[in-house]
Design a protein around this nucleic acid. Structure first.
Lengths: 239, 239
DNA sequence: TTTTTTTTAATTGTATTATAAATAGTATTG
DNA sequence: CAATACTATTTATAATACAATTAAAAAAAA
């Protein structure tokens, strides 16, 4: 793990965060008491308490005298926190979670493309184009497909010039990573897929907001449809 | 303030969080050192450090030996955290921020309605209907318009049965509150506006996903258009 | 018995003190 | 001038003590 350059408190935050998102501690469960956590991780109460406070700030747990430290209902979890999203990724997400990711991506990315077409500045366009170039290189095996793809989607969010969309970078990135897990493709993106990305960029560049929206929506609908089908098959086999 | 029932650490978290979101400490600025914060709030280092850790967990600050405690770039802020959203609300948001809120609402709410039409269970529908009833009562002055409206939008997010949409409750609620600030209407919702809400509900109830999407989108586009116009006027006056 | 009140004990909340580790800035050296 | 070593500041961690809260048990009252 990356524990080496993290301080003690942050190591414990990550350990506990992972365990909660993996379901080792379920909603409503009590975590070990401060004293027990101290012995378990062999650290002082100071470090333990700071870790507990950080997880509290991320909406995962609550702690009260005599009651102890408890995992709170998942509707309070800060699902858009970069750490929480990483822990979700570690916790082996299933197809249903992938669908939840894709449902929100379908809401966000077309509108982000729309806004990018309206508000993108020259550096924003340069960034998108640079990501596209990396994707092209990737098809020749000269760059990493997945990283280039992530950079493409992130740069469009940035180009929206809306801080809320920009903050959703972590969500989109995690969503893409979950997607990779399930598709697990051995080949780089196809020419068609690359072209779809180019189309979105061209519309943004030409300030064609609605066209950019439509193009992005097309991709999202296609991806979601695939997962919906997979789930349908899964549920058919179950019965 | 609600300080009375909050413990010391949480009081300090709120004080510092507010100041950061208000811009009293700007991005890149150093906060007072731990020692200074202790004297400023008249608390122990324990409480101070725990507060700092909580704000770190929310992405607002970072702290390192010798460097001190600094406000990090706003792109790292957890803008979907309930506390952060509250501090934004306290920090007198401007028209541009309202536009940013509305741009994301426009992305989220129609798709939430779409999903609600697909996945809402009976209790979800009951909840939406109950909010509608409150809105009707509100037009007769028997309930609070704003609260009923907030409940309506929240219940649709819940009905999506998607944890990510559900977590956006805080965002939508804050967005509605910012909206109220700027429109500051003295009368309850008009009959037309009420009907628009009823339409969305009916489509959700009848599993008409696309119609629900379209109805919700119509409302969002109208709201955003008003703010875009207000900003246009504002910028015309400036020059 | 049943309900209410009191007590107790477990757990977190806060304060204090001491020491370690990291690092920006300064001084020193080659 | 560049590289290195030093120093002082600040956060990181530990250890200990006591206060505040409260769930659960015990006692008292009905």
């Amino acid at each position: 793990m990356q524990s080496s350059h993290l301080n003690l408190t942050q190591q414990v935050v990550h350990e506990l965060g992972k365990k909660i998102m993996q379901g080792s501690y379920k909603v409503g469960d009590s975590l070990p008491s401060e004293a027990d956590l101290c012995t378990e991780f062999n650290i002082s109460r100071t470090a333990t308490r700071e870790a507990v406070k950080m997880l509290t700030a991320k909406g995962l747990i609550s702690s009260r005298p005599r009651q102890g430290i408890r995992v709170v209902d998942s509707k309070h979890w800060n699902l858009f926190d970069a750490d929480v999203l990483n822990w979700i990724l570690i916790g082996k997400p299933d197809l249903y979670l992938l669908r939840h990711f894709l449902q929100l991506r379908l809401a966000i990315e077309p509108e982000a493309a729309f806004l990018a077409a309206q508000y993108a500045e020259e550096p924003d366009l340069k960034a998108i184009e640079s990501a596209l170039l990396r994707m092209k290189d990737a098809t020749n095996g000269q760059d990493d497909t997945h990283e280039a793809d992530i950079e493409f989607h992130q740069s469009i969010l940035s180009a929206s010039n809306n801080p809320f969309f920009i903050q959703l970078k972590y969500f989109i990135t995690t969503s893409l990573k979950v997607n990779i897990r399930f598709t697990n493709r051995l080949v780089p993106v196809t020419v068609d897929e690359y072209q779809a990305h180019v189309d979105i960029f061209e519309h943004i560049k030409n300030n064609e907001a609605q066209a950019a929206f439509d193009a992005a929506m097309l991709t999202q609908k296609a991806t979601l449809a695939i997962v919906n089908d997979q789930i349908a098959v899964l549920e058919a086999n179950k019965s």
